[in-house]
Computed example of a mutant assay.
Amino acid sequence: MLRSSLFALITLALPVTAHAQCGGGFSNFVSSLKEEAMTGGYDRATVNRFFKGVRQDPAILKADRAQGVFQKPFVEFSQRLISQGRLDRGRAMSKKYDAIFRRIETTYGIDRGVLLAFWAFETDYGAVQGNFNTLNALVTLAHDCRRPELFRPQVFAALELYSNGDFDPQKTTGAWAGEIGMVQMLPRDILENGVDADGDGHVRLKTSAPDALMSGAKMLSHLGWRPNEPWLQEVKIPADLDLSQTGAYRKKSVAQWQKLGVAPREGRLANPNMKAALLLPQGHKGPAFLAYPNFDVYFEWNQSFTYVLTAAYFGTRLSGADRYDAGNPDKGLSGSQMKQLQAKLQARGHDVGEIDGILGARTRQAVQQEQKRLGLPADAWPTPALLSRL
């Protein structure tokens, strides 16, 4: 049984020293982590064995700073990630693990396409799980001052997994950001949502597909997934639609969207009373989707709009949906042009977050506001024409 009360004490209740929060000398930072762990109830010998040989890994920091793939627009990004081979293998995996997917659907009400898509994108169905030492990754990112509040608690979660016999500080490997296993879960998520689905007495997310899939499903349920409801659906929009009503944060009932002329590309729309947002990832000339409440849960797993939309869309493909209509979107901006745009938007008083060349949620909102002000189609898709007007 997990010592959840002890883990909560360490991660939530203890005062945190300046060194433990982030920065400073790395050895001093590790010493601070050790002291906190022992104050929380772990014995010195366990703590010393756990942290023995831990080191700062420059490759981790380099990977954290170089996520350029998320600068690509949705159509290009999704076509790059979704190959026929991935579709075919996903369907094969659906058959191979039909029993566990049926169990997931019965227990959590989560469609198998959702888990298959995560499994495919995170590790190519378990084939590529990452070879970074997980403890080094977690401590390096906890020491770094960009996101210490995310990674510091993960160090103690890994210590708890170690004390339970489910983590090896020297041998456990995974992604550069500390995620472990076939669906890439952080240690704290494993503690809270890990499921021994194959009944061997351990949660083995690296080697057991049933454990990984059931744990991923429990995590999605914990994050708020609404059982047996859709998450994304491709639609067609009328030419006279008020585009300023589109976007992830502008939700209407399905009935209201229907009244405005939004129609499904195939099948039928969801319950008329269900709320949904109309997403135009590359503007009104590109693909269009209705995003239902479950779509929001994806952002608890990953913060990239492009990644999330692609994962959600791939889930629909694996569940039988047709390939989207790519349309003929207006030309977008290069990475350097996007940074110029973000700087101009920031100068106009918009909060776009970090000027990173990535079309994130806040940049989209600012773009839409400026498009509306300038009398352009307010579809949140930045073009060279908008950049020129600004």
Rank of each mutant, 00 (worst) to 15 (best):
F7D: 00
A8I: 04
L9H: 13
L9N: 12
T11L: 04
T11P: 09
L12A: 13
P15T: 08
P15Y: 09
Q21N: 03
Q21S: 06
Q21V: 09
G23H: 07
G23I: 04
G23D: 02
F29R: 03
F29P: 08
V30K: 05
S32P: 01
K34P: 01
E35T: 13
G40N: 07
R44P: 00
R49Y: 02
R49V: 05
F51C: 04
F51P: 01
V54K: 02
A59V: 01
I60T: 14
L61A: 06
A63F: 00
D64C: 03
R65D: 10
V69W: 12
F70D: 05
Q71S: 15
K72G: 07
P73R: 10
E76S: 11
E76C: 03
R80Q: 07
L87Q: 10
L87I: 15
R89L: 12
R89W: 09
R89T: 10
T107D: 14
T107S: 15
Y108P: 13
I110Y: 14
I110W: 13
I110G: 14
A117Q: 01
F118I: 12
F121Y: 08
Y125Q: 07
Q129K: 09
N133G: 12
L135M: 04
V139G: 04
V139H: 03
V139S: 04
P148G: 12
E149F: 11
E149N: 11
L150P: 02
F151P: 10
A157I: 05
A158Y: 09
S163A: 15
K171I: 06
K171N: 14
A177T: 03
G178W: 03
G178V: 02
M182I: 02
M182T: 00
R188C: 00
L191K: 04
G194Q: 06
D200G: 07
L205H: 11
S208Y: 09
P210F: 08
L213K: 06
L213N: 09
K218Q: 14
H222Y: 11
W225V: 04
W225A: 08
R226Q: 13
E229H: 12
W231E: 07
L232M: 11
E234I: 08
V235R: 04
P238V: 06
P238N: 08
A239C: 02
A239K: 15
D240V: 05
D240G: 05
T246R: 13
A248K: 13
Y249M: 15
A255P: 06
W257M: 05
W257R: 07
Q258R: 11
V262Q: 06
R265E: 08
R265S: 13
R265K: 14
E266R: 12
G267E: 03
R268F: 07
L269K: 08
A270M: 07
N271I: 02
N271W: 05
G283I: 01
G286Q: 07
A288M: 11
L290N: 12
L290M: 10
Y292I: 06
D296L: 09
E300K: 15
N302Y: 09
V308H: 10
L309S: 13
A312P: 14
A312T: 12
R317F: 09
S319N: 15
D322K: 15
P329K: 10
G335D: 03
G349T: 03
G349A: 03
D351P: 04
D351M: 03
D356H: 03
G357N: 04
I358G: 04
I358P: 04
L359G: 05
A361K: 10
T363P: 07
Q365K: 13
Q365R: 13
V367W: 05
Q371S: 06
K372C: 01
K372G: 01
K372Q: 13
P377R: 09
R389V: 01
